[in-house]
Every structure is written in structure tokens, then in C-alpha cells.
């Protein structure tokens, strides 16, 4: 019996948590999220190199929340998601029991936000180098080439909203996409609505994205839409000194201001 199963069983038995979010074997050789409520179910839990999904997205889902006090198996992205959700007053300190899976398979417990913050400070939370290269490649293009690139990518979009469902930061009860009075985003999967939808999503995630990449992983059409939000991370850090998902008491960059914010395009 693995350490994880032992640990989760103990947590469930002494009522520290009522449910645990982890990974189990899915169909074929896929891994999927699972919600463990008792000792029998705990036997399904697995932990290996393929377990990369950011499970923090489930923490705010209504069906999961009503299970009671939650425990979660977290990776670095999930820890950052939890920090960002905390800074947006979506999770209270001590509300979630976090088990972090180290690279060697051992587990680290986090019961409060301070310890997560301390851990993240010494951890690499940056964007993967291939994604950085892709952003640099796009930035080197002309505006027109970029337009053609994204037009081609957005053309594939089938408006399934999997990116929105997978994103731990997309927790609004009523998304702008669903609003039809006025109809901000045309519903048809036409280039216009697709462009609107993706720019709206990127803008609403600007300064909040914790670069977990779940949106691009979830996309059935393989649109690299994580690049849209990733690209905004460095300018927001450079201009406003803000990084998402590092501190539980951080202030969202776009809901505050400094009288001397620098720009060079307003006449």
C-alpha cells in the first residue's frame, strides 16, 4: 500500500477531511481526477509521472464543495492556483488540506497558506522553455503575421468551452460568454465570436493566470491558447511588479493602481 493511500485513509478516518481529490486510472492509459470519500475508494489512488493535471480547478465546483472539508493532491501549479484563489477570497486559510507530491514520490503536507508561500518562494514557477520560445517567435513576427497565425488557430475553435472548464481561475457563476443581454460574444463558432471569446478570456485572466497550461491541455483542437495569457505575465510583472499565485494576500494588479504608473502611448 502506497504512502498516499495510507495517508489519505488516515485523514479520512480521523475526520480531518471528508473528501480527497486525487488521480485514478481512467480509460485506456489515461489518468483522471477522482474524489475519494472512504477507505475503499482510497485504494484507487495512484501517483506517477503522468499525474500532471492541476486539480485545484475542482476546489470551487459546487458538486465537490458540498462533500465537506477537502483534501487535495497538488503539484506546483495547483499550489499557485490555491494561493491565487485565496487572494481572491475564494478559499480561507486552513480550509483545504494540501498534500504536495515531491519529485521523488514523497509527500509534503501543507495545512496553512504561510507554509505554501514559503515553499513557492524557493520553487521554480516559470514558464516552460518551449513555451517561452514560441512566445518569442510570435513576438518577432509582424502584426499581420500574428493576426494570420491566430486567425488560423481560432478558426479551429469549436466553442466547447473546455478551456474555461479546466481553468482553476474561471469560476464565475455567469461568464461573459453566457450573457445574451447584451450578446457580448456571438455564440456561433464563427471567427468573430472565436476571437472575441479568446481575447475576453485572456483579458479576464491577465495578471491572474498561474501558467498551469490546463486550458491548452484541455483543448480538443490543440489551440495553444495558454500563450495568450502567458505572454501577459512578464509585462505585468515588469510594469506593476505583480505575479499571480505567489501570496495569499496579494492584490490583483488590475484592481489597484499607482498614480505614477508608467506608459508611453497616451498623448
Amino acid at each position: 500500500m502506497s504512502d498516499l493511500i495510507k495517508k489519505v485513509t488516515a485523514l479520512l478516518n480521523d475526520k480531518t477531511i471528508n473528501a480527497f481529490i486525487g488521480y485514478e486510472k481512467g480509460s485506456a492509459d489515461r489518468i483522471r481526477a477522482t474524489f475519494i470519500r472512504n477507505e475503499d475508494q482510497a485504494q484507487k489512488l495512484i501517483l506517477n509521472a503522468s499525474c500532471t493535471q492541476n486539480l485545484a480547478g475542482y476546489l470551487l465546483k459546487h458538486e465537490v464543495k458540498k462533500l465537506g472539508k477537502l483534501g487535495i493532491l497538488a503539484n506546483v501549479a495547483a499550489l499557485r492556483s490555491i494561493m491565487q484563489l485565496a487572494s481572491e477570497f475564494q478559499i480561507k486559510d486552513g480550509e483545504v488540506y494540501v498534500l504536495f507530491a515531491n519529485a521523488d514520490g514523497s509527500l509534503t503536507e501543507f495545512t496553512d497558506f504561510k507554509s505554501i508561500e514559503a515553499f513557492l518562494e524557493t520553487t521554480d514557477t516559470g514558464i516552460k522553455s518551449e513555451e517561452q520560445e514560441m512566445i518569442a517567435k510570435l513576438e518577432a513576427m509582424t502584426v499581420n503575421e500574428r493576426w494570420l497565425f491566430w486567425n488560423k488557430e481560432f478558426e479551429k475553435c469549436i466553442k466547447c468551452y473546455a478551456c474555461r472548464a479546466a481553468c482553476p481561475m474561471c469560476y464565475c457563476h455567469r461568464c461573459t460568454t453566457d450573457v445574451n443581454q447584451p450578446q457580448w460574444i456571438p455564440v456561433a463558432s464563427h471567427e468573430l465570436g472565436n476571437l472575441d471569446y479568446h481575447l475576453m478570456r485572456a483579458m479576464h485572466l491577465a495578471g491572474r493566470c498561474v501558467n498551469c497550461g490546463e486550458c491548452a491541455t484541455a483543448c480538443p483542437m490543440d489551440i495553444p491558447l495558454n500563450l495568450l495569457t502567458y505572454q501577459l505575465i512578464s509585462p505585468i510583472k515588469a510594469t506593476f511588479g505583480a505575479t499571480a499565485g505567489m501570496k495569499a494576500d496579494a492584490v490583483y494588479a488590475l484592481s489597484t493602481y499607482k498614480p505614477d504608473d508608467k506608459e508611453n502611448f497616451i498623448i
Binding site: L138, V143, N151, Y257, F265, I267
Partner: peptide, 29 residues
């Protein structure tokens, strides 16, 4: 206008990256 300025800084970045010509939007006071 302070809040708007922050939003424009970010929005202009996003427009530029997604291939929309920022020359066509003029911000002014």
C-alpha cells in the same frame, strides 16, 4: 482613469500579441 490606464496597458499588450494593429487605437487625456 488610474484603473483605466492599467487596463489599457495590459489590453494593448494583448492586442499587439494577438495581431490587432494597436496603431488604430489612440489613447489620450
Amino acid at each position: 482613469n488610474f484603473h483605466a490606464r492599467r487596463r489599457w496597458i495590459v489590453f494593448r499588450n494583448l492586442l499587439n500579441f494577438s495581431g490587432i494593429d494597436t496603431e488604430r487605437i489612440q489613447f489620450s487625456w
